[in-house]
Design a protein around this nucleic acid. Structure first.
Lengths: 347, 347
DNA sequence: TTTAATAATACAAACGTTTACATTATAATT
DNA sequence: AATTATAATGTAAACGTTTGTATTATTAAA
């Protein structure tokens, strides 16, 4: 009855046709040395003829491997995360893995739900980036307890024992960028960034502070904005509002993402300032469209794609070596280099 | 031995602990009316205590459902596709499905490979957008033959029997946009678009032509560019090169994507023209960053997210109703409305 | 030829569920 | 108290593979 509806060809059908056992057919398909070449040829030919497609689910149940990597990102609509996914995918596909992306929609609850879903055995390993809300880690610790290979990336506020970590040095990168602004003899520098709950933003702000300290300069609290909004439009109004209310305008801005830099430039332009002539702006990220923006954005370039590749590499190592080996592995943290890209929003 | 390494809790373990049969435990987990409430409570409690996680693979093998939708997009690094994915994901998650995204990297061979992978039973249905290279359709017809629910979106050059189709009216949308430019009394209008191999671009160009015809106007062949490059930088040089070599500059440009519009504006700006004062530009898509661009982009707004939702809706209908019902279904094509968004690159 | 070695194939259990059917326990009816 | 209806649980097959072990066929050595 089921065969009537779902007429998939199975190993059994091939076996029956060729009067072989299922085992032999299975071994023939995987090119085992235990089956005669002639038989292999016959099996392959008839499989092709009958339109056989291996059932991946059955394979997975039997082998305990799905060849799928779970990827949890905070949101789809931030190009940085997509670039990382693209890097993960690129490396994964080379090694016969596919990726299952789950967005946690900036919510800790969704994140937990995503982790839970991956505990049901649909993936061989998990790569994830925490939301800004995440400050409790039982969910990932449980993942580790269950021997699920795990690699964290980008927004890492807390090192998880047994997990891999891939990130950049947000602190130093920010220092470098702000130092550039200081060297350009800017009297006062402002900061525009995302919610301080997110560790990458925090670290970038810390870098901003540190650069000032290092050069015995000070900055004004009223020149610092930690955006709370999430949608592009809301963010724009928050930035615009902040800038338009400023009594005295700083001579430069360091922004914790390219997007904030763009919102900043857009607002400044609306307010009648010229970038970079009146005010310099440096962003962080180096997204695709940053170089297409007018003026082209000077920023800290973050190796998003490479980050993804590295994440996948670590994850596949963990999967291949088994949990215990990688657990002892010293190399559970990778810090990727950033570099400054000078374009048209600085002088 | 396996239990030593992988100590996952199974229904059997719960059954043994409670001296019940696996069947009863299974039924208790799915809240079947055939098991006593008291027993259900006990099962749920002990499952929680033992940290039970259902094995999705085993479930899938038994039930024939994976609750995963396969999504094939030509590339990751085009925000339009990601928006569609986000829409698919949004609808899918509401209905207890997840999505497995595969990029075909603008290559027909990869596309076929992706389709093949989905024939191995890892997904309950497939949503896909053809690459610009795709002009043979055996691979998707085979998918249909194998009774795999299929919904195509965006770049549809060929209707596939039994598949769902979700698209916009590229032709009319383009006509409307170009008519606007004509009404603004622009003497001559240029066109910048992507490869003519991609049907959406072709249709948008056809709209460009049609608008001229309708208003008894003509356009110059040398004012038309079908970009062949793929990477952002290459595309920029191709556009810039094209524009800088133009003997006489048109008064306006209709571009087949927002990205081309941005490249166009950027090039024009470099060449000393003011947009929109000297030259008007209209894009197509309405991506997130289009409204952040300086000047803000006037464009045809394409409902990307909604398109994704619609794709998922059709796909889940096909999955739920079974192949045969939806095959006869009259409503196998949906054309979503676009609208013009007027901003700062037109007068 | 018979025996031993090895090549080729077959059998059957396992992976962790679901579910049709069978059985046993309980409650309702007489 | 016996009978019947029904509630609760159990047994076993099925989903489509893989793989350890057993069996049979073939070849090489005696």
């Amino acid at each position: 009855m089921k065969a009537e509806i779902n007429n998939r060809v199975r190993l059994e059908d091939i076996a029956r046709t060729l009067k072989l056992s299922i085992a032999t057919v299975s071994r023939a398909m995987s090119d085992s040395s235990r089956v005669k070449q002639e038989t292999k040829n016959k099996v392959l030919a008839i499989a092709e003829e009958m339109g056989y497609r291996p059932n991946q689910i059955a394979k997975s149940l039997s082998s305990g491997k799905t060849n799928i990597l779970g990827v949890i990102i905070p949101r789809y609509d931030e190009p940085f995360f997509i670039e990382v996914c693209r890097g993960i995918d690129y490396y994964a596909r080379k090694h016969n893995y596919r990726i299952l992306i789950s967005s946690s929609r900036n919510s800790f609850n969704y994140e937990k739900e995503n982790v839970l879903a991956f505990e049901r055995g649909t993936v061989d390993g998990v790569a994830m980036c925490f939301t800004h809300e995440t400050n409790s880690f039982e969910h990932v610790e449980e993942l580790i307890d269950r021997k699920m290979p795990l690699v964290l990336f980008d927004n890492i506020n807390h090192k998880i024992d047994g997990a891999g970590h891939v990130k950049i040095d947000d602190f130093s990168s920010a220092i470098k960028a702000v130092e550039d602004l200081i060297k350009h003899k800017n009297e006062s520098i402002g900061y525009i960034g995302g919610t301080s709950k997110k560790s990458v933003f925090n670290k970038r702000f810390d870098g901003f502070v540190e650069a000032h300290k290092k050069h015995q300069k000070s900055f004004k609290k009223q020149h610092v904005l930690n955006c709370k909004s999430y949608h592009q439009e809301h963010e724009f109004y928050e930035v615009f509002n902040f800038l338009s209310k400023l009594r005295e305008m700083p001579n430069a801005f360091f922004c914790s993402t390219d997007n904030y830099a763009i919102l900043c430039i857009k607002s400044l332009t609306k307010l009648g300032y010229k970038v970079p002539k009146d005010i310099e702006v440096i962003g962080f990220g180096n997204l695709h469209y940053s170089s297409m923006f007018i003026p082209e954005l000077t920023c800290v370039s973050q190796p998003s794609f490479k980050m993804g590749e590295k994440v996948a590499e670590m994850l596949l190592n963990k999967i291949d070596n088994g949990f215990f080996v990688s657990d002892v592995d010293q190399d559970n943290e990778v810090v990727l280099p950033t570099k400054m890209v000078y374009r048209d929003t600085t002088r």
